[in-house]
Design a protein around this nucleic acid. Structure first.
Ligand code: SF4
Ligand code: SF4
Lengths: 133, 133
DNA sequence: CAAAACAGGATTAGATTAGTCCTAATTAGA
DNA sequence: TCTAATTAGGACTAATCTAATCCTGTTTTG
């Protein structure tokens, strides 16, 4: 099961989908949680992460909530995955060479670097204008 | 960290690399464990999985061990990943549609199916003759 | 100033990963 | 035929990560 996005990331995508559907309107965590079947407190945390990553913007206080900060064509699956899970790579040695002392003479390492890059590129191609067309 | 092969899978790849290097010779778990820095009992389990998947063959009894069952060009990273982790997909709904009741009207689902397929194809292209060239 | 919202740290429950342990079953060779 | 070397496989455990909750604080409208 390891090569898979987490439930949290899937929730985050649903959050973005909801905001896109609301077309610039400020939405509360309550709305999102209810409409997208995400536990309220968990959704709140996810929205915080998405805000810190600059994908959405928060509005505090009464009548507050969240709004999309970019247009759908400026948000990709990669943006969301990395906003939630951090930089992605197919094997630990890709991001942190020192994590494995075999790396200098490992014949597989360079290929994990390549596959990781291919995956990132692919995920980056899926922007929400394409996803929703 | 979620989109990443497990340590067990990385170990499995090292096991195969070792067997390829030994060129048809029967190798014991002890040899492999020592040479590839894999905990002995864990390596034993991994070899069992690789044998059940048909990538290697076990020889029981004294002077027993494991031998490669296919040529390097007939073994890909995908074969090993799936031998250890089972069928891979980028999101749970790809392999099990019923896992998510939003699937029938989810605009992202079809794209996860596509990305998963791309990843499988890519991993399938990395056979050990290429990896070791 | 009260109520409706977000902010963020700490904590918890459950699942998965990583690894161990123990008891068989097999087999080459003394 | 017995013994030591070796794999087979189930049960168990420790550590880590995922999924989620809780609680206290801050902001802001009306
Ligand atoms: S053995 Fe090679 S592929 Fe595996 S973690 Fe080390 S460097 Fe990376
Ligand atoms: S919401 Fe869509 S992408 Fe997410 S699990 Fe359900 S079907 Fe799959």
């Amino acid at each position: 099961m390891a090569i898979q996005i987490t439930k949290e990331t899937d929730y985050a995508i649903r959050c973005i989908l909801y905001l896109i559907g609301m077309n610039g309107q400020v939405c509360t965590v309550g709305d999102i949680s209810r409409e997208q079947s995400i536990p309220y407190t968990f959704a709140a945390k996810i929205m915080q992460k998405l805000a810190r990553a600059g994908l959405i913007e928060s509005v505090r206080g009464v009548k507050g909530g969240f709004v999309l900060k970019r247009r759908p064509e400026e948000i990709s699956l990669l943006d969301i995955v990395e906003a939630i899970e951090g930089p992605i790579s197919m094997n630990i040695c890709v991001l942190d060479r020192k994590s494995c002392d075999r790396q200098p003479r490992c014949p597989v390492h360079p290929w994990w670097v390549e596959i990781s890059e291919v995956l990132r590129e692919r995920l980056g191609e899926f922007t929400f204008d394409r996803i929703l067309k």
